[in-house]
Amino acid sequence: MLRSLRSRAAVAGGCVAALGLGLALAAGAPASATDRTDPNGRYTAEEIHHFLEGFYGNHGPRPWERDYLVSDQLKERNAQTPGYDLLLCAQNEPADIEVGEVTTAQSARVGWATITTHWAQEPRTATFTAYVDLDGSRPLQLLEVDCAPGD
């Protein structure tokens, strides 16, 4: 739904754009303790999936997501790759992005999903893995990206 609203906001502008921005901002905010379904105070796979869909949208993270929803270490690594966007594992903006099923490792306190990018230049896709911290006491943020293709 968020992806759909973001697409409509780009076309309609005005009030719809403000609504889309509000939803995108809400996607980065942690759920309150009463919204939490995990009794251990960790983010759930559903919450992480929602976050990653909001973060990546249809074409990649916007400046706000890049500034506020990425770990400092990942921001630093991305800054060291001029001409290559580490957050997308690509040099260009994809035509579309899909977030796969989220896996959580409670003992490692991390969740991850395969991100699939679709490219308009040719009918091809690429995949990478995005990692998010499960600690519900902190706001959700992208911790790490593994650009190596999965098996």
Rank of each mutant, 00 (worst) to 15 (best):
Q106C: 11
R77I: 00
V16C: 09
T34H: 05
A17G: 15
M1I: 11
H49Q: 11
L19N: 06
D151T: 12
L87M: 04
A26L: 14
L86W: 00
A120K: 09
G54D: 02
D72K: 09
Y84E: 03
A130E: 01
L142H: 00
G83P: 10
G100C: 02
T127K: 04
A148S: 13
N58M: 08
N40T: 00
I48G: 03
V132C: 07
L142Q: 00
R109F: 06
T125H: 11
L74I: 03
L21H: 07
G111E: 07
A95Y: 03
R77Q: 13
I48Y: 05
A148W: 04
A29D: 15
V110F: 05
A108R: 14
G57M: 04
H118T: 11
N92H: 14
S137N: 14
L74G: 08
P149F: 04
N78A: 14
V70M: 03
R138S: 08
N58W: 11
T44F: 02
T127Y: 05
D146N: 12
T129L: 13
E122W: 07
L86A: 03
V11L: 11
P149D: 03
E65N: 09
Y68T: 01
L140G: 13
T114F: 08
V110C: 08
I115E: 06
Q91Y: 08
W119G: 01
A9K: 01
H59L: 10
A45Y: 07
Y68M: 10
R77A: 12
A45W: 05
V132F: 00
D67C: 04
R77M: 11
T116D: 05
D72S: 10
E144N: 15
C147D: 02
P149Y: 04
R42F: 14
E93P: 02
N92A: 15
G111L: 08
T81Q: 07
L23M: 12
D133T: 10
D72F: 04
R138F: 13
T103R: 06
T125F: 02
E98M: 14
A18E: 12
A108D: 14
E47M: 09
Q121T: 11
L142R: 00
S137F: 08
H59S: 13
E53I: 08
C89T: 01
Y84P: 10
T129P: 00
L140E: 11
D67L: 13
A148M: 07
E101V: 15
D67M: 10
G28W: 02
E76S: 12
P30K: 05
D151Y: 04
R42N: 14
E144Y: 08
D151N: 11
A29C: 15
T116K: 08
E122C: 10
Q141I: 01
R124D: 01
G20N: 02
S71T: 01
